[in-house]
């Protein structure tokens, strides 16, 4: 569930960290509504290819984005750890298909590298990345939700 009561201290960011293949990614916890076990996803004909389909979220129809496809990563089969992270941005709710949710991390703002230099070689997906956080020697790639949802035009 969304933990809105966890107010962040200055200079710190809380992220919900999850895995896509063997890389670790994160959404700001403020955007995460809940995490759901994988349920049957209904394919939507004519939908953009990165949209896996729709699921039933307690009576409403929720689109699910195949995050690996969106980021240009190679597909892997579902596992017992596969989850749907339901994020909310600008009143729009979307499920994000991820390989596994690892933990909720607090990252010091100083440890987040927002330069695009790292991903410069991979232009197509660089716009989806808002920064890279370093914690305990691990890298957590911060994702830009509005770009991923395709709400900021162009799609």
């Amino acid at each position: 569930m969304a933990k809105e009561d966890q107010v962040m201290a200055d200079g710190e960011v809380q992220v919900v960290a999850f895995k896509l293949r063997n890389e670790e990614y994160g959404f700001s916890i403020l955007n995460v509504q809940e995490i759901k076990n994988l349920s049957d996803i209904t394919r939507v004909p004519f939908a953009p290819d990165f949209i896996k389909g729709v699921v039933n979220l307690r009576g409403s129809v929720l689109p699910v984005i195949d995050l690996k496809k969106r980021l240009g990563l190679e597909d892997t089969p579902y596992t017992a750890n596969t989850r749907i992270v339901i994020v909310q941005y600008d009143e729009v709710y979307v499920g994000m298909l991820v390989d596994a949710v690892t933990e909720v991390r607090t990252i010091n703002a100083d440890d987040i590298d927002t330069t695009r230099a790292i991903t410069a070689g991979n232009d197509a997906s660089s716009k989806f990345i808002s920064g890279i956080g370093k914690v305990d020697g691990r890298l957590i790639i911060q994702l830009n939700i509005s770009e991923i949802m395709g709400l900021s035009g162009e799609e």
Binding site: V44, F46, A47, S60, V61, P63, Y93
Partner: peptide
């Protein structure tokens, strides 16, 4: 149910 903003305007649905 509507398909929502993300999937609006899909033909045939």
């Amino acid at each position: 149910k509507t398909l929502g903003k993300l999937l609006s305007g899909l033909k045939m649905l």
